[in-house]
Design a binder for these strands. Sequence first.
DNA 1: TATTGTTATACTCTATAACTATA
DNA 2: TATAGTTATAGAGTATAACAATA
Lengths: 164, 164
Amino acid sequence: MTDIDRPTPSDRRTRQRPSKSGKMALGPLPELVGYNLRKAQVAVFQSFQNAVSPHDMTPGQFGVLIMIKENEGLSQSDLGSAVGIDRSTMVAVIDRLESRGLVIRAPSPNDRRSYALRLSPEGEKLLDELIPRIQAHDKAMVKDLSAEEQAQLIDFLRRISRAG
Amino acid sequence: MTDIDRPTPSDRRTRQRPSKSGKMALGPLPELVGYNLRKAQVAVFQSFQNAVSPHDMTPGQFGVLIMIKENEGLSQSDLGSAVGIDRSTMVAVIDRLESRGLVIRAPSPNDRRSYALRLSPEGEKLLDELIPRIQAHDKAMVKDLSAEEQAQLIDFLRRISRAG
DNA sequence: TATTGTTATACTCTATAACTATA
DNA sequence: TATAGTTATAGAGTATAACAATA
């Protein structure tokens, strides 16, 4: 799991996704929750890219930034286990965010082996701008669902995650 | 998107995924449909691995096999656009399935540029075995939802995909 | 000219193993 | 001894560009 960035295969801002599976036979796939889950997620992730454009941000990166903002001073390892990725993988993730000037690797006051991660002022600023846009985008994704249905959907999804 | 195989980062059959995000503050994430969608999908994909074990099959590969079974003789390009990936990417996907003896690149009768893909007898056999297991696994994932809720969930997800 | 499969190239995600500096 | 960050290595997903064979 965990793909910090999953839906960003290419950065060359050139998304095409016609999926002409129109005349294709799909067998048992359409009846599988997993199949529909994946398709919905793909749709959401793709439009996410547009929603945050031109900021080149992925859902995974956004999640990491939120996590750092909400838990200032946490270590890379702690962040990794929270997000579900190995600490060795987290290195490059933070490398990118740091090189973009969004995250700071501050020295940890108590443990000289680890960093205390925090957002830079630019990171804070970006997040302040992105949060409302991403929330709006999220609402737009479920605009065809009534308020009650949206709540049900989230409830269903959480129950699935818990069941895991 | 498309990730044919997304949730299979490592093949070293050693999945750990505690996600001790227990005491972590998550800010606005839990309210986002996209966030819950991703978490649910991760849960499903991971247990999928167990469900098909020891067959080393990913949801994406399973989808490709189904597509070939249901549309015998289709070309790599057609398969690629159906699944949503580039034909250059499809090469390696089919390479793997072919090297595992599951898929055959038969010459296309009409077009000498392309292949007519089809399942090998082993591919057919594997699919016959996997389909019921995967269907059972899928049902198990939503065992906490009533039949009506399951139907609603799939309906919601399809509406989101359409909205894209 | 356009299309199919392919290869070369380039990112990203992800993991394991091993190393360094610290605890 | 154990842990945090790192690097080396490896494998998969994904794309674009360009090329040969074929349409």
